[in-house]
């Protein structure tokens, strides 16, 4: 059983070499080629997927950033608007106050002028009355106590009026 048969050894070597040459051409090369091509394809597609994911994440980040910016801007606009409004309100109130103050001042002035005019008129009338009283006194008996009484009565009348 252990005897060596050189013929079989030779046949084995010859068969193996032919088999190797044939299989290498028709089987192993195509098989390995397809295998490496597929592996390459899987690797690249995985890489591409990762890239796409990273890009999407970046976009999302950007979007978030932009959204935050927009929010901030709108907040600022609102704040600014409010401030402007406040300022306007204060201004208007101030203006209104000023004008009312002016009006009051004017009114006071008017009143004073009216009063002055009235006083002047009054003075004129008092003078007239005094003259009238004096005429009456002159017409009547010119005694001193009566004169005094007449003048006092006239003044009282003026005061009463």
């Amino acid at each position: 059983m252990l005897e060596i048969n050189p013929g079989l050894i030779l046949w084995t070597i010859v068969t193996f070499i032919i088999l190797l040459v044939v299989l290498r051409a028709v089987a192993w090369k195509p098989l390995l080629g397809a295998l490496t091509a597929r592996e390459e394809k899987i690797r690249t597609s995985l890489q591409r997927t990762e890239q796409a994911q990273q890009e999407a994440e970046k976009l999302l980040e950007e979007n978030k950033h932009q959204l935050a910016q927009a929010e901030e801007q709108s907040q600022r606009a609102i704040k600014e608007g409010r401030e402007t409004g406040e300022r306007l309100k204060a201004e208007i109130i101030e203006k209104a106050n000023a004008s009312s103050r002016d009006m009051i001042e004017q009114a006071k002035e008017e009143i004073r002028r009216e009063k002055d005019a009235a006083l002047i008129e009054l003075r004129g009338e008092v003078a007239d009355l005094a003259i009238m009283a004096a005429e009456k006194v002159l017409d009547a008996n010119l005694d001193a106590p009566k004169q005094r009484e007449l003048v006092e009565t006239a003044i009282r009348e003026i005061n009463k009026r």
Binding site: P6, G7, L8, W11, L19, L23, V26, W28, P30, L31
Partner: peptide
């Protein structure tokens, strides 16, 4: 050297042919 086709030579070739066939089918 006896290059006679013995039973084992036959199966050696048979295996080689079978393998060729299967490998080609797979490829």
């Amino acid at each position: 050297i006896d290059m006679s086709i013995t039973k084992h030579v036959f199966f050696l070739w048979f295996a080689a042919l079978l393998l060729c066939l299967l490998a080609i089918v797979a490829a």
